[in-house]
Write a protein that binds this DNA or RNA. Structure first.
Lengths: 204, 204
DNA sequence: TAGATTGTTAATCGATTAACAATC
DNA sequence: TAGATTGTTAATCGATTAACAATC
């Protein structure tokens, strides 16, 4: 089992080599480390979790590394998703190309606002919240994205859980309770800002 | 100096007590831990970094804790910011109430798209990228938020750094290089999705 | 009082760094 | 060959957990 912190870095390595021009076919722990602010020692240690052989004086083979990490990180697995909350953030995520390219497949958005319901966003419909449970069950949706205000996040979460969702990606600043078989990831944007401010003001 | 991991949790404690109904005036390490998925032991340990006295059989005084953490986490300090990239994500952040309430003060958005430039978003103007440097200097902007595509993120970053910005909040999936006096925080949304998917597919 | 809960110290655990031999 | 770089083991560092006395 690869430790969680290592997986996080492996994805960073992946996106870095992904962004490399095609003529570069070897990458060293030093290059990787420098680009990502990680010590070369640690990069090498992380690499020992992968079934990739580096070469002294050259580093790691880019193409092989890319393919290997793609598999390991399951980047080719499609995830059927719905987004609940068709505000600006929900719409941004629905249209975000980086997510589409990484095989997050958004099937629909949901909202309570009658102004929004019935409209569409590109080729995605905005459906009423009442339809959520049926839709999730019928389409075997695996992942629910929550982009509603904090005060209704738990309620939406419960709806998703009852409909049989397996993962929840929560953007509302709320501490959600989910049964242990449901995977929850909080993307606390406000916390991100708060922590950046502290660093900025601390060091002066 | 309070360790970074502890600061992250202190903010979680803060938002939790913030969300409590006013009639609750004491909160125990158990309550906090349960709500946030943290062991009560660790909550108590974290509390030792704060100048807050708990009471056996009662816990910690909510109001005091709230005030104390507000100061410690510098939540009342206003941060003058600009958002570069007036797409859906940039607009979502510009309008996000959670950020406004936490004293992120957005002064303007910037974009290269002539379609967007000149328009406004609520009471915020969308200005051309050429004006960025002058605007940042003139208004003593402290923080730049990057919501442009990955391929132009470094360029925007350099512009901000040259204009004298002190912190960069980067939403583009790119490994930016900044001089060491500039604080950089990456909010890698795609990574968030990738890690959630791994957890979901791993355990079953 | 008895029982719940804090505050603190010691033990454990895990992650990072340092060091260095092996190799191309 | 000399020099750069991997792969791996040992040392260090830091964070979490366990344990328990103090206290209301």
């Amino acid at each position: 089992m690869i430790p969680w912190v290592v997986l996080e870095r492996l994805y960073l390595y992946y996106s870095y080599v992904e962004s490399l021009p095609p003529e570069i076919s070897w990458v060293s722990s030093q290059m990787l480390g420098e680009a990502l602010g990680i010590s070369p020692d640690l990069v090498r240690k992380d690499m020992t979790y992968c079934d990739i052989k580096g070469k002294p004086r050259q580093g790691y083979p880019v193409q092989e590394l890319k393919n290997y990490l793609r598999k390991l990180l399951k980047l080719d697995e499609e995830v059927k998703s719905v987004i609940v909350g068709a505000g600006r953030l929900g719409s941004a995520l629905a249209n975000y190309d980086g997510l589409r390219k990484n095989n997050m497949r958004v099937l629909a958005l949901f909202d309570v606002d009658p102004e929004k319901v019935g409209k569409s966003l590109g080729d995605l419909s905005i459906l009423p919240l009442e339809d959520l449970e049926g839709f999730v069950k019928k389409n075997h949706v695996q992942c629910g994205v929550i982009t509603v205000p904090a005060h209704s996040a738990q309620q939406v979460c419960d709806l998703l859980v009852n409909a049989g969702i397996r993962a929840i990606w929560n953007f509302a600043p709320a501490a959600l309770r989910v049964p242990h078989h449901v995977h929850l990831r909080n993307e606390n944007i406000v916390q991100g800002f708060v922590l950046l401010r502290i660093r900025m003001l601390e060091v002066n």
